[in-house]
Computed example of a mutant assay.
Amino acid sequence: MAILLTWRALIFLILLAGGGQASDNTVMCKLVKENQSERKVLSLLEPLTNQNFTGVTTSGEEYYTYVFQVCGDADGIKEAGVVQKSKTGKQVLVGNYSLTQAIGGSGWVMLIYNGGEKYDGHCSGEHRSAIVMISCNRTTAAGEFSVVLENRDRGLDCFYLFKMDSSAVCPVISSKLSTGSILLIVGFSCLAVYLIGGFLYQRVVVGAKGVEQFPNYAFWSEIGNLTADGCDFVCRSRGSRDEPPTYRGIATEPLEEPEERDDHLLPM
């Protein structure tokens, strides 16, 4: 009875832990060309959603703050993935998450936001775009967001490059447990459930005290006695310890009979 209740409790906890449905905030990102592979890459960034990440850069007297958010409104601006703020407070849309590209590899994700505001006197007046390189780092959930460069000294395809580290993009480490190890873990788990559940049942329901609280105490004690008797029977000799009589072999040659003397029969 106690074991059955324990298993029911374990099943309930497992269902409770797995019953919640994970959020999917990355669906807010609209891909330039909808496809399953890029959606799969975006899903890796789910732990980083609903957070603003800030980086600062200076160049001479210029001072800019960049605000980044994964598939969310950066700095509160609608559909803004990356926003640039000058020291005067002016905001410039660098990348729009409604025009997203996502490229992933083993331990890294490149998130590209297109459709930013147009340049005034650079890059032929094209729209700005932001590239955020997110690399694997198992020691941090979300590392520092920093500016690498702004490539605007070319006629076309200018971009802002940012980087940050996160454990969210790290590849899953596959289990290296052998079959024997798994069986041992399962065996010890079942033994622990049996002992704990049986102990609680004997103590709470039956009201046993002392060693009687051990589950199936009579059965296990009888097995111990039978084992001891068997070992005693096999390993100890019950016969007499007197030295056996000496063995004498049978001679292979016939014994010579003693010569019969009849001298005493002659007359004196």
Rank of each mutant, 00 (worst) to 15 (best):
L195S: 09
E256W: 01
G224R: 03
R236S: 08
V211D: 07
F233I: 06
N225M: 15
V204W: 01
V234I: 15
E212L: 06
G207D: 02
R241C: 09
I196K: 00
G239R: 08
Y217N: 04
D229H: 06
E212K: 09
C231W: 02
P244Y: 08
E222D: 15
G239D: 13
V204C: 05
C235G: 01
I196G: 06
I223Q: 08
P254W: 05
R248G: 09
D229L: 11
R248W: 07
R236M: 05
E253M: 03
T252H: 06
E243K: 15
P215A: 04
A228K: 14
Q213E: 07
R236P: 00
E212H: 07
S237E: 11
G249M: 09
E253C: 08
P244S: 14
F219P: 01
I250G: 06
S240A: 13
K209D: 10
P215C: 05
P244Q: 14
A228C: 10
V193Y: 00
Q202K: 08
R238P: 08
Y217S: 02
Y247A: 08
E222M: 14
G230E: 05
E256A: 14
A218K: 12
I223Y: 01
R241T: 12
F199R: 00
L200S: 01
P244C: 08
T246P: 01
A251T: 07
P244D: 12
F219A: 14
W220N: 04
G210V: 10
E212F: 02
I250A: 15
R236K: 07
N216Y: 13
A228D: 07
V206S: 14
D232A: 11
P215E: 02
P215V: 01
S237I: 04
G198P: 00
F214E: 08
I196A: 10
A208V: 00
A228N: 07
T252Q: 05
D242A: 09
D242R: 03
L255V: 04
T252Y: 04
G198H: 01
V205T: 10
R203L: 03
E253H: 07
E243N: 15
T227V: 10
N225D: 15
W220L: 11
V193R: 00
R248H: 13
A228V: 06
G197R: 00
I196P: 00
Y247P: 00
A208I: 00
G198K: 00
Y217E: 06
